[in-house]
């Protein structure tokens, strides 16, 4: 135990927490490893890339909003299955999901990312950054791809990825939390479980620090997403209002 919020937990408890979170992750990760392997890593051909590039900006934004929303629904389900999450007050469940669900989508993206070809699984095939040109935010897309590439380079196992996702989601420093201490306890326990798993998997000591650095990268990506959405909404208010998924609008204040 180190610090007020840090609970005294046994190894058995950490094992249990790690197992529950890994199980929740596998049950809710949208695509299983086996399914991803069967996708044969097929890339979009040039004609298909150009087809995406010719789409009107608002159509491509809508398509991406739908894909993000689908992925987020699985993250909500993941959160619900984390031991202790549903014991938090509903305000805090919502605060954590509003702030963290897209971050977890970015973390999970490394499972569907082909580092060699710099391509992500999107709309049925693997897409490079050029597929998203019509969105009009090349800088953000490049940063998202760089993030996925750097996550892949850590070669996290599924259980490590699961615990890191839970750690991100349970961030106790989000604004508007009502029972901050409860969230802190849960995040501390998750961090201890992550450390425990890293030690068990004989990972290098600095991996936890590398993962902590990813937290600030994730925040930056998400705030830039919000900025890009605001800029888009300023030009196409009706498109956002009528064609974007309601959950996306709830989460990102559109």
């Amino acid at each position: 135990s180190n610090g007020d919020a840090s609970p005294a937990v046994s190894m058995a408890e950490l094992d249990h927490q790690a197992q529950i979170i890994s199980k929740s992750h596998l049950e809710t990760c949208q695509y299983l490893r086996e399914e991803l392997q069967q996708m044969s890593w097929e890339n979009f051909v040039q004609d298909e890339v150009e087809n995406y590039q010719r789409k009107p900006r608002e159509v491509m934004w809508q398509l991406c909003a739908v894909k993000i929303t689908e992925a987020i629904q699985y993250v909500v389900e993941f959160a619900k299955r984390i031991d202790g999450f549903m014991d938090l007050c509903q305000n805090d469940q919502i605060v954590l999901l509003k702030a963290g669900s897209l971050e977890v989508v970015f973390v999970r993206m490394c499972r569907m990312f082909d580092s060699q070809n710099n391509a992500v699984y999107f709309d049925g095939k693997f897409a490079g950054p050029d597929v998203f040109r019509a969105l009009g935010c090349d800088d953000l897309i490049a940063s998202v791809f760089d993030f996925a590439k750097s996550m892949c380079s850590l070669h996290l196992s599924e259980d490590e990825l699961a615990l890191f996702s839970a750690f991100v989601l349970l961030s106790a420093d989000r604004s508007w939390l009502q029972e901050k201490l409860q969230v802190e306890k849960l995040q501390q326990k998750t961090q201890l479980a992550l450390q425990h798993v890293l030690q068990k998997n004989q990972r290098e000591d600095e991996l936890l620090n590398k993962l902590r650095c990813k937290v600030s990268a994730l925040r930056s990506l998400c705030s830039r997403h919000t900025e890009k959405l605001s800029a888009f909404r300023a030009v196409y208010p009706d498109i956002v209002g009528t064609r974007f998924p309601p959950l996306y609008k709830e989460l990102f204040g559109a």
């Binding site: 949208q30 629904q73 909500v76 509903q90 469940q93 919502i94 999901l97 309601p246 959950l247 709830e250």
Partner: peptide, 20 residues
Amino acid sequence: KEKHKILHQLLQNSSSPVDL
């Protein structure tokens, strides 16, 4: 609550990934 209607629903549903 009205502002986060869908999130409330998702949190209260006993959905499985198969249903999503």
